[in-house]
Design a protein around this nucleic acid. Sequence first.
DNA 1: CAATAGCAGTTTCCGCGTAAAGTATTTTCT
DNA 2: AGAAAATACTTTACGCGGAAACTGCTATTG
Lengths: 161, 161
Amino acid sequence: MAKSSEVLHATQVDAVRLGGLETSIGLHLRLAQLRAYDRFFDAFQGVDLRPGEYSVLWLIHQNPGVRQGQLAERLEIKAAQMTKMIRRFEDQGHVRRVIPDEDRRAVCLFLTEGGSAFTLRHRDAFFGHDTHNHHGLSDAEVGQLIQLLTKYTTPTKGTGQ
Amino acid sequence: MAKSSEVLHATQVDAVRLGGLETSIGLHLRLAQLRAYDRFFDAFQGVDLRPGEYSVLWLIHQNPGVRQGQLAERLEIKAAQMTKMIRRFEDQGHVRRVIPDEDRRAVCLFLTEGGSAFTLRHRDAFFGHDTHNHHGLSDAEVGQLIQLLTKYTTPTKGTGQ
DNA sequence: CAATAGCAGTTTCCGCGTAAAGTATTTTCT
DNA sequence: AGAAAATACTTTACGCGGAAACTGCTATTG
């Protein structure tokens, strides 16, 4: 019965005619990103953290004193969203905000001791789920995929074809 | 001055040490999807439509009478979200909902005349932005990218790695 | 054929992500 | 130096997207 329902299930999905949508990069990107999310949450079960949040913690760990705006720009997170995220991290005791004397508009970010421990504790969960064990893709394929995504994201202006 | 600020700008972004994040598929997928969104909105200037919404209209156009659940499953849109989207389309006069006698729980979807015209009118904007003119990627690269994304999204279970 | 389980879709509630406006500080221009 | 512009972030308001609970209909089961 499980089998027959699965077959029926597959039949229904395949029954939808895509009419050209099957070659839509946008749709494939969406579906791929949903998988990436699933895998992240599998690796971070019960931790209540999102991929973007771990990325921010990791970058602060790698760049102590980095400014919010630099992280926002690099990760293409909007400034408003970054403010809220950092506020949450501050409330959780993971991140410390420092207003530098050199420019009192800016905010420099540091991990607390607890935040650093947290970040390192989940390092393998994050990079393991994403950098290694790429769920069916060989290392070469991962390299190719990243290269193609980068090319799609950053159209070559000067050196391009 | 524009030039010097651009240089400074680039310097700041490059100053962020990624520490392994540069090979994160998840991050690259996010950045690529943001570009796909940008390009869609460029192509649909002033139309107030999102990629997922056009996809749904297109699939209804290709599959008159298709059920909400089938679209939701194929596009991995949650049922709750699909309900709201279809409601909006109905309010705009693009889509007609029909409860079939064969199963009065279900909802079958049809484009109205206006909805069909709307969908066809923007067909090139959608497929042009996404299927052709892939912003720096050759046709072969697009094929490769889609193949890799598909493989990432749907890990081969039976045939193994 | 009534009771139970399952299904298709809807409603409610909540949080994230964004745009736009606001605040405080620094830089530029004259 | 003082006015204007730019910068770095914050606040506010709003819509989308998701989880969970709910409604109404259909299929199963004893």
